[in-house]
Nucleic acid binder design. Structure first.
Length: 285
DNA sequence: TTCCAGGACCGGG
DNA sequence: CCCGGTCATGGA
């Protein structure tokens, strides 16, 4: 499969913090798994080459390839404060990750750092997921709810999140929480439903809504985003949602991801010298 | 040693 | 509604 798209950058898409099972190879290509499939993506002169055991339609959906990111990026760039971040992360695509994988991964993410999140998720897959092979590469699918139900998960060392995972597993298995049902709800109603899972609050729910259900209207607020919104827009936490809804034209989720990626890549923890309210444009690319 | 990480829960005010 | 303390774990 060949993907020719200026608005799809491997590093930006896989390192922007939305996913935990993609890793860079020495040559800059990326390998990873989703939905039980394996893929390797490398950037060539005529586009991105994707090798996989999955049908193209799976990745078409997963990488949100039918959406016009040029248009969305351009829309968001009309906000002159957001524009430098939109340019810096213009190759980010919002992944549509399989629901259960996304839900469990972001439950694990809470009060945690990305490198350890990846280790815990990988341990979960290695210990409880199904082993597969793609050529000479062995990989482990994300475990299904059935594979996790009733098991002692303490080997993955996820700390206090253990009972949260157990609750999510049983609620999904019972059918009470499902992708199909959530898809039929508004984002607000779906968020309320997700938050009935013990260990799922607003932030984790919004990440699931954005990274699995493709709800671009939500705006997940983690420590980095809250810090950045205060820094560059001078907004308190309780002001962010209404601001995002009225300024990001229905694409708050992508705006949030641009900001998160920009802030983390540039270690934006305090006000850069001299510029209190504009992202520094000379840091782009 | 202390602080922090893509937070959530619980209690009390 | 909002606030502070607490919850495992490991890296800086």
């Amino acid at each position: 499969m060949l993907i020719s798209n200026e608005y799809f950058n491997l590093f930006q898409t896989f390192e922007c913090g939305q996913c935990f099972r993609w890793n860079a190879n020495a040559d800059g290509s990326y390998s990873g798994t989703a939905g039980g499939f394996f893929a390797k993506l490398s950037c060539g002169s005529s586009g991105i080459v994707l090798q996989s055991n999955a049908p193209d339609s799976f990745w078409q959906d997963y990488f949100d390839l039918s959406r016009d990111y040029c248009s969305v990026n351009s829309t968001l760039s009309r906000n002159h404060i957001l524009a430098p971040a939109a340019r810096f992360g213009k190759g980010i695509r919002i992944l549509r990750q399989p629901f259960f994988e996304c839900l469990i991964s972001f439950i694990i993410s809470q009060n945690n750092n990305i490198s350890r999140i990846k280790k815990i998720v990988e341990s979960l897959c290695f210990n409880f997921g199904t082993a597969h092979r793609f050529g000479n590469i062995q990989y482990y699918a994300f475990p299904t709810p059935e594979q996790l139900h009733g098991r002692d998960l303490s080997v993955i060392k996820c700390g206090f999140r253990l009972r949260y995972i157990n609750d999510a597993v049983s609620r999904v298995l019972s059918g009470e929480i499902s992708y199909e049902h959530l898809s039929s709800l508004s984002s607000d109603d779906a968020r309320v439903k997700l938050k009935t899972i013990c260990g799922v609050g607003s932030k984790v729910a919004d990440c699931v809504l954005l990274f699995s259900l493709g709800r671009f209207d939500v705006f997940p607020k983690d420590v980095w985003v809250k810090r950045t919104m205060k820094l560059v827009f001078n907004l308190e936490e309780n002001e962010i949602d209404t601001f995002a809804a009225s300024n990001f034209a229905g694409y708050a989720g992508l705006a949030q991801q641009y900001l998160f990626f920009y802030a983390r890549e540039n270690d934006l923890k305090s006000i850069p010298a001299e510029s209190s309210c504009v992202l520094s444009p000379n840091l782009s690319d």
